[in-house]
Write a protein that binds this DNA or RNA. Structure first.
Lengths: 126, 126
DNA sequence: CTGGATCCACTAAGATACTG
DNA sequence: CAGTATCTTAGTGGATCCAG
């Protein structure tokens, strides 16, 4: 395999990794939910109130996904009624902070660059 | 405004910035296209061949979006037939490299962590 | 060759109602 | 309280044909 081909392969692998990350963290709600959990909202209905606009259905699905990826931890506090369920942050979940930070910084810079210059962020009413 | 409220505001602003970034870079194709352009594919059909699976419609739309955000530059080489159009990387487009890098690293680590442990990246056949 | 136009399929997500 | 079930809607992307 030649050098150029190696480069191609590396590049594809990087892209695949990026897509994995997007798959786990992307979408409309995942980061919001992680943030909320980290911020101290632990109960289901608490989260639904904190995250304006999310439906129970979606919140439920997203929490399951985050739990599978070990970004939050689900803990049943009692098996008597009323059942108390808590979603707690994991130490691993904290590792997304760096990602969020870099992404956020770029987004901020980009907005400054583009705002007023054109309608680039158009159709995404700020 | 109290300290806690300030924190909330900051947090919301960060999230908004992250979402802006996601909006500009996210989706199925944007990063792929940027990568392809940076890698030396400049013509429309060249890009379509390089990016396996993309349709002309989507490529066209994505390129417009990227151009609006100044991540690629569209240049018409001749106004005679056959018209030659080139999509070129901008220096600004290079600033996404850091983002891609961080995202990619996290994605890679995450895959290693999760693979085999569960079906977490499930339904996303690798 | 470079796309625009049209039509269609798929999926994410909203609304609402309901169960243990 | 903590979800699930069902229905519906909106956005995204694919396929195909067509025009400059």
């Amino acid at each position: 395999m030649k050098k150029a081909e190696l480069k191609q392969t590396e590049c594809a692998a990087r892209l695949a990794a990026v897509e994995d990350a997007m798959y786990v963290l992307g979408g409309k709600w995942k980061l919001r939910i992680i943030t909320a959990v980290v911020s101290g909202y632990h109960r289901f209905n608490e989260l639904q109130r904190a995250i304006t606009g999310i439906s129970a259905r979606v919140l439920s699905a997203e929490l399951k996904s985050l739990e599978l990826n070990e970004l939050v931890r689900r803990e049943v506090k009692a098996d008597l009624t009323p059942v108390v369920v808590e979603y707690l942050p994991t130490e691993y979940g904290m590792t997304v902070k760096e990602v969020v930070s870099v992404l956020g910084n770029w987004g901020l810079k980009h907005k400054k660059r583009i705002t007023g210059k054109s309608a680039a962020l158009i159709a995404k009413e700020d």
